Structures are given as structure tokens and as C-alpha cells.
Amino acid sequence: MINRRLYLSAAALLLAGAAPAIAQERPATSERDQIAADFDKDSVTVGIGGAYFPDYEGSKTYRFTPAPVVIGSVKGFAFSVIGDRASLDVIPNRPGQTIDLQLGPVGVVNFDRSSLSSIDDPRIRALGKRGAAIELGGYVGIGKTGVITSKYDKVSVSVSYRKGVSGGHRSDIWEPQFTYLTPVSTKAAVGLYASAQHVGQGYADSYFSITPTQALASGLPTYNAHSGWKSYSAGGFVTYSLTGNLLHGFKVLAGGSYSRELGDFSYSPVTRIAGSPNQWLGAVGLAYTF
């Protein structure tokens, strides 16, 4: 299964496909008015994509896996179920508003290293299997529509907090995130995003520390990782409508991201010897909005 951090990067690519977009080029008035009216209507986007990403967090070998997504807005309440992550914005959006206040619960199932058969490196397999970690928490954020390129582009900033309550770790995770999306026509939109992660000691021990027993089994040296800023990520995405416009019908999605492990996490033998602190991800997908 996709590990949590990389799945979020892939999810960001798919999320772009559900964002309403109104043309910067000037369509006919009736078309522009219709799209503007549809902006505030209920909508749901269902998509399936494929992500090419590292075997585990810090790996230098890669694999391909599907990445499903369902996101939408009903009665002004935005929600998303993206692979192993689910969230709900409990502050409803009002028709025509340009400021989007965001607040709600978030839950993640972290599958990182929960399946040893998906890991090529025998040294990492020898470190042992991690249970799938259930992470629960919430997020708060704010978005602004009409910022840079037109009155329809959007900037969003948020921060989430999750706590591992079972499985692979029982640790804190803080994650600030920035997203920018702008339409380039009624059919296409592009965007950028960036995020970082600060994790607690339990997370560091579970995925990056190596005990003497694990060192004997794997041949990797012992290592004690400490809590702190674990990584940053940055990427871009594009979506293009195949039928109609970005608010209706089928669309294709594509994008990529770069992540860098930081501090103790970059120097862990899991990363520095067996893997790499530089992590890449590519994703393509198909979605339908109705």
C-alpha cells in the first residue's frame, strides 16, 4: 500500500480535478454565467489514478499502484475520501463567497512498511513489519478566491494535526500545507502545492530508528532518530476536461512532486544507506465530475 506522505502527494494531484474553474479567456456571456452558476451547486468527483512512488518512506526503489478518490461538496459541506485518508469541512461554503474558512476532522490509515512483500530491499524487510497505523485528528485552514491571475484563482493554507491511536506508531504529526490553483480556460487548470511534516518520537522510532536486534538481522547499523521536522514536499499538477468543462464530465489529471527527508530522518540508515533522502512521485489519472 502507499505510505501516507506519498499518498497525500498523489491525492493532491487528483484533488485538482475537482476544483471548480472558470475561464480566464472570455467565453460567451451565457457560457460564463452558466459556469458561474454551477460553481455553487452540489458536485461529486470520482477518480482513479496511478502513482509511481518509493517502496517505503525513504526508499530508492519505486513501484506503481492505483490511487482512488471521491471528493465533493453537498449543501456547502466539502468532503474527501482519498485512498487511506478522509476529511470533512464542517464550515459550509456560502454561494458567491471569496473567503473559505476550513475546519474539520481528518483520519488516515498509514500503511507504510505494513506489507514486506512490496519492499525490494532485504535489509528493510529484515527490520520487520509495521502494523497499519490509524491516525486521527483535525485541520484548520483558510482559502481566498481571486488573488493573483484572475478573480477565479484560489490560494489555500492549512495545518493539520493527527495522533497515531493504534498500529505502527502512537505519535503526533503536524502538517502545514499550501495550495494554489488557477484556471487557464473552461477546460484546463494548473496548480502548485507545498507541505512539510513534523513528527513525534514514536514515529521516528517506528520508521527510522534501528535497534541492536534489528541491526543484527538487517546488517544496517544501529540508529536513534529523534522527533522533529521530517520532510518537505513541493509539486505541480494539471487537469484537462475531455467532455464539456471542468465542472462536468470526464477529465484527465497529471502531476509530480519532490520530497526531501530532513535532519535525523535523512541520516537514518533506512534512508541514507538503504534508500535516499530524495523522493519523487508521478501520477496520472481519470476523473468524472457530476
Rank of each mutant, 00 (worst) to 15 (best):
P176C: 07
G164H: 00
G131N: 10
R170H: 12
G164W: 01
S156H: 10
Y193C: 03
G167M: 08
Y139N: 02
L127H: 09
V190A: 14
K129E: 14
E175D: 07
G131H: 05
H198Y: 15
V190I: 15
G128L: 01
Q197L: 07
D153H: 04
R162W: 01
G138V: 02
R170A: 08
I173A: 00
T179C: 02
V157C: 01
V159M: 08
P122F: 13
A133K: 05
Y139E: 08
D120T: 15
I148Y: 13
G191W: 04
D172H: 05
L181S: 06
I142H: 10
L127K: 14
R162N: 05
I173F: 06
S171D: 02
K163V: 05
G167Y: 03
Y139L: 09
V184C: 10
V140D: 08
S158K: 11
I148E: 02
A196C: 04
D172Q: 09
R162C: 04
Y139C: 01
S158N: 13
I134K: 01
V157Q: 10
Y152E: 09
K129H: 12
V140T: 10
L181R: 15
L127W: 12
G128M: 08
K163M: 05
K151T: 06
H169N: 10
P183W: 12
S156L: 05
Y139M: 02
G138D: 07
S156Q: 13
V199L: 09
I148P: 06
G168D: 07
Q201E: 15
G146N: 12
F178N: 04
